[in-house]
Design a protein around this nucleic acid. Structure first.
Lengths: 139, 139
DNA sequence: ATGCACTTGCAAATCATTTGCATTTAAAAG
DNA sequence: CTTTTAAATGCAAATGATTTGCAAGTGCAT
C-alpha cells in the first residue's frame, strides 16, 4: 500500500528531528497520508479516532502543528471555515474552491507564479510566499 | 475635507437601504473613510471611541458586517491576525503584506486577473471571486 | 410630540485553536 | 529486560476573534 510508504516517510522525518513516534501519532500520520481531500482538524480527528479511540482532538492539533513546522504538511485557511491540511510532498500548487460543495481543486500556473515574483520585485519586495485562491461555481 | 464627502456617501447608501444613522455609526463611518491603512476591528474601535466614547466594540463589529453586506467595505483575513477592512470605493486590487511590519501594499495586475479567469474556466468553473496575497520582505 | 421597530451596550456564547497540568509512555541507558 | 526521564497525552480551562440574547435606549415616519 502506498499509505504505509508515506507513513514511513513521515516517521523518518519525525524520528530524525528527535520526535517520538507514539501510537496516536502513527494513526494521525496514517490518516493524513491516506487523505486526498483537504480535511480539517475535526475531520482528521474523526478519522483517526475511528482507528484508535485514544486519539484526542488536542493531539491532532499538536501533531498538525508539529508537521507544519517540519514542513511536512501545508495548512490552508480558506474563507469561512476551519483550516484544512494536505501533505506537502506534491508540487507547489494553488487552489480553486467550489463555493457550493467546498471541494478543493488544485492547479498550477507558472505564468502566475512568475508574475507574482515580478510584481513583488517591482514593489521592492522579496516574495517569501503567497496565497492564491479562486472561488467559483461549476459552469 | 474629503472625509466628510465620503461620510455622506456611506450615509446615503445606508439610508437608502433603510438603515438608521445613529451617532455611533456616524463616528464609525467617519473613522473608516479617513483610514488609508487597513485597520482591524479593534483598531477601528479605538479610533472611534476616541471620538465618541459611547461606541462599543460590538457596534463596530455590527457596523462592519452591515457595510460589508452592502458592499461598501471589503474584509480581508490576512494570515495570522484579525480581519482588516478597507473602503470598497477604489478599483479592484490585490495585496502585498510586509511580513516584518504588517504593512499592506495594494497592487493590481490585469494579466493575473485574466489568467485567473482563464484557469477557472479551464477547470469548468465560473470565477466568482479570488484572494491573492503576496507575503514578502523588503529587498 | 409619539410609537415602535431598529440599535445599542453588556455579558455570555461560539468556534477554532492553544495551553496548563497531572499522568502516561517512548526509547536511551544500563 | 528494567530503569530512567524528558517528551507526549488527555482533559479542562484559557485564548482570541467575532457573534448573539436581551433589556434598555433612540432614530425617524407619522
Amino acid at each position: 500500500m502506498e499509505a504505509s510508504l508515506k507513513d514511513r516517510d513521515y516517521e523518518q522525518v519525525l524520528r530524525k528531528a528527535g520526535v517520538r513516534i507514539t501510537r496516536q501519532r502513527q494513526v494521525i500520520l496514517r490518516v493524513l497520508s491516506e487523505a486526498s481531500d483537504h480535511p480539517d482538524a475535526m475531520e482528521l480527528y474523526q478519522r483517526a479516532s475511528a482507528l484508535d479511540s485514544s486519539v484526542s482532538l488536542t493531539t491532532v492539533y499538536r501533531t498538525l502543528k508539529l508537521l507544519q513546522e517540519k514542513g511536512e504538511i501545508h495548512r490552508h485557511a480558506f474563507e469561512g471555515g476551519p483550516a484544512r491540511f494536505e501533505p506537502a510532498d506534491s508540487e507547489h500548487h494553488d487552489h480553486l474552491i467550489d463555493l457550493d460543495t467546498g471541494q478543493v481543486i488544485e492547479f498550477e500556473s507558472e505564468k502566475i507564479e512568475a508574475l507574482q515574483r515580478e510584481i513583488a520585485r517591482e514593489l521592492g519586495y522579496d516574495l517569501i510566499h503567497h496565497r492564491l485562491e479562486l472561488y467559483g461555481r461549476k459552469l
